[in-house]
Write a protein that binds this DNA or RNA. Sequence first.
DNA 1: AGCCCGATATATCGAGTCGATACATCGATT
DNA 2: AATCGATGTATCGACTCGATATATCGGGCT
Lengths: 236, 236
Amino acid sequence: MLELAILGLLKEQELHGYELKKRLVETLGFASGVSFGSLYPALARLEAAGAVKAVESRVAPPVPATGSLGGELAALRARKPVTRGSRGKKVYGITERGEQLFEELLAAETQSSDDDRVFNLRLAFARYLPPDARIGMLERRRAHLVERLIQLRVRVQAARDTYARSLVEHDREAAEHDLSWIERLIAAERAGRQPEPERRSPTTGATGAVSRIARHGPTISGLRPVHHPTSPEEDD
Amino acid sequence: MLELAILGLLKEQELHGYELKKRLVETLGFASGVSFGSLYPALARLEAAGAVKAVESRVAPPVPATGSLGGELAALRARKPVTRGSRGKKVYGITERGEQLFEELLAAETQSSDDDRVFNLRLAFARYLPPDARIGMLERRRAHLVERLIQLRVRVQAARDTYARSLVEHDREAAEHDLSWIERLIAAERAGRQPEPERRSPTTGATGAVSRIARHGPTISGLRPVHHPTSPEEDD
DNA sequence: AGCCCGATATATCGAGTCGATACATCGATT
DNA sequence: AATCGATGTATCGACTCGATATATCGGGCT
């Protein structure tokens, strides 16, 4: 899951850990943005597997200005061992093996606990999938949502407490919304192409022509952002 | 988080681990229902802390059939859907200390990663909170959602890929839905009482009179069910 | 009768994640 | 020049997950 996200981001551009973390929050929708305690070990695993490699970034060689005076001092300070502390960002790039691993992870049909997060992540990288795989993924998601909706319906009946009922009903509504969204995506995929810029359906929440199963759609999203007002800084 | 859920369930009824797990999925909305690898250690921690204690529930009392009127034949034919294998179950009950701990956990103002799940959990137990604490909780949630919506707005702008954009816009819509829901809960709480049985707003998704901030609400739910068609069995 | 199967039930293990923290450097403000 | 906050890499302890081990019960099968 984290591996897939990392590889997907590195596919587009070489990045170092800190920047990677920011992108996980900003461009993918990682809630509360993955901790360093997960990210760095994950990068280490990927590196050990040969999926990514550290591209010597040689942070701003010996000072941009005056190649002489300032540079010498800077060089002295900067030669610290790369093992601990010391600056010198480790910029990672994806390898041939990494591209391969990405394909595998993207196409896999997991059914883990955080299904929602994984689905959203895959959808974010859907452009790398062949059209039929895309539809397969969406259909599986749809089936999952239908299943979930059925369970939510049961829970709505069972809820005795006022708050619990309100909560479950809200979840059910969110689920219906999710399902109709997925069905719109599937329809768009089967038809020509482009899912259309998300227009409100003409009537209301009825999903219109999609299928009456849309009347019961469970689930929610899974990926969501958290604050983090970082400026899109250039590295170095 | 798990502790809060366990204590909340044990407050209502004594339960053993296996049953507890089922309830976490069925009555609280625990997605993919907490693994035993989390549940049993959590119970052990709570027991060590004196918050719960095992109530020895000796093996099933001898013969359920004879005790009741004309039940012998009926019991034989009826496959006994109740009274399942009563092995050496450890039935847990909440203690005085546990009630205390429950109050603390419920009232705490965390800000962890899985904010959504924790909020939903707390809301499910909102009946145990005094009215003002309830409103405080809802207001904090609202603030959180507003913040998130702002971030989602930014992300919608930044999304270049078709799929990514569709995903973010869907998240934004779900967030708006969430926010208007919370605002309805707050309004209901401030007014007399009872949040009203979740009626569709008159127009569409406009949220109506709540507040124009509702036009941007991020997030999703967090708690959701997974299948699991278990029968509501009685214990011993 | 015997025997295996699936549900019930408790428990542990390895791997992965989180939140906190340590350590270090850079760029601003003061 | 000194402090402060952002940037940056890395590790630690506590916790969770998914898989697995173990055991008992109720029934179905031949």
